[in-house]
Design a protein around this nucleic acid. Structure first.
Lengths: 259, 259
DNA sequence: CGGTTTTAACTTGTATATTAGATATTGCGA
DNA sequence: TCGCAATATCTAATATACAAGTTAAAACCG
């Protein structure tokens, strides 16, 4: 590199210099992320698999294996795993191994409480702000839920369920609260995959949804939040028996006999 | 790679084989993370600098520059930046640059609401569970706050402030809620750095803290949460004037004239 | 001199190589 | 057979190298 064959005079060394405190000006800022990075894709895939309990807690995840299996290098795999580690979906043990995270028992009641608090707030705000168009959108989602209940197709119900909650948050202009709910909800979702679901429950839940929307339409904050409360509290996990049945999937960091 | 010069007979290929669904058994699991990884250190440093507004929104962050300055490779720097990106503290524009994130205006009211909801929940639970020892610990923190108020040392007050809220969450056995609060609080904290603080305010806040603790000691959920509400709502940011004064530090993704 | 094109230097994204630590197996000695 | 030490081979952590894309300044042209 020390050769003297520079085409002309050395071009004054400093070329591109961005002014300090200059936000990006180029067009890349507006790109719609047409191509997801490999790391992003891998992250989404792994996230989905872990939350769906397709990969069970405790399962070793090898960066090398995944990289080889997906035909990419370790770097994007690693970046995906680090993100999952921040979300407590994998446990990285330095120099030793990476494992699908076991579910910390203590996180489950806390998650339920946090979710309840956030969704109540969201529901109240939605009841205050909802327009006629918003109500139409909500009822559309509910009708799609009823359609799924009819067909009995299990897989898609929770997606539309989430869609409703997301829409309520959007109406409340509190989308970021729904993002938080989604985060805390993941461990609960993983638990739910461990239990068989009452087939009549989906119908029951949809009716609950409808009642919430009724109250939002009426602008009755109190009633709407009460109904949302009932809806969320309706999901009760039998922790002790679950932990007993699948001890390897949990971190028993809480006394289950206590409150 | 196709050579046939394997040293001996291939040693039965499979050696170390970890049983499926086997959580880690080694001692590394219990290591107290004696040595923080470079990535972790860099993350903490950058996080601190950004939240303290030592690095202003819009400032370009070059992975190469940081790596060179710290005498490490790009890899740990990159991992730190990716984490900050997940927390919305930096904006990464692919193939273009990385910048200290501007503050999304819409996130601020939402953060306030989320924080309020979570801390109310925490305070109620703490009022139910607090023991005599817990109250002693809380009062100790408050006395340290008063000490800081006396000296007028600005820098450490917010640390002890956070300590109190963290302790309340710990008493409530809802530490994870405090973790969530800390996350949403960061953008608010960055804003607060932009405004001069009333020197009498610290004293006022400490009195509020004391009143909250009084209510917790009395086991009065209602009163405690009411006082916590007042305490949290006492912090009002004058968004319009802040955005006007520092337009480059904000993303104006919300109509400030509306509610 | 103004507008356009070229181009080189900068960016992050990904791939590969090296390093250092953890651990299950192995082999040895009692 | 049991306990223990040696070691091979796994792991994640870090370093380096390369590729693909962006952008601002320089070169060119009118």
């Amino acid at each position: 590199m020390m050769d003297g064959s520079k085409p002309k005079v050395s071009t004054k060394s400093k070329r591109r210099q961005r002014a300090p405190n200059a936000p990006p000006t180029g067009e890349a800022m507006f790109a719609q992320r047409a191509v997801k990075s490999l790391a992003e894709t891998l992250y989404q895939d792994l996230h989905k698999s872990i939350v769906a309990m397709d990969i069970l807690p405790g399962t070793p995840l090898s960066e090398n294996e995944i990289a080889a299996a997906m035909g990419v290098s370790r770097t994007p795999v690693r970046e995906a795993i680090l993100r999952l580690s921040d979300e407590k979906l994998v446990e990285v043990v330095p120099k030793s191994g990476t494992f699908v995270a076991r579910i910390p028992v203590s996180a489950l009641p806390a998650a339920q409480i946090a979710r309840r608090a956030l969704e109540i707030e969201t529901t109240c705000a939605a009841a205050r702000r909802a327009t006629k168009e918003d109500i139409v959108a909500l009822r559309d989602i509910i009708s799609r839920q009823y359609a799924i209940v009819e067909t009995g197709d299990n897989s898609d119900y929770h997606v539309v369920d989430d869609e409703l909650h997301a829409k309520i948050a959007e109406i409340a202009r509190l989308g970021s609260l729904w993002d938080m709910v989604q985060q805390v909800k993941t461990q609960i979702d993983r638990c739910r995959k461990l239990t068989l679901h009452d087939p009549g429950r989906k119908s029951f839940v949809t009716v609950q949804h409808e009642k919430v929307v009724d109250a939002i339409e009426a602008g009755d904050e109190e009633l709407a939040s009460q109904r949302m409360w009932d809806h969320i509290m309706g999901l009760q996990l039998d922790l002790p028996s679950m932990v007993q049945e699948y001890p390897n999937y949990f971190i028993p960091d809480m006394d289950l006999t206590a409150t």
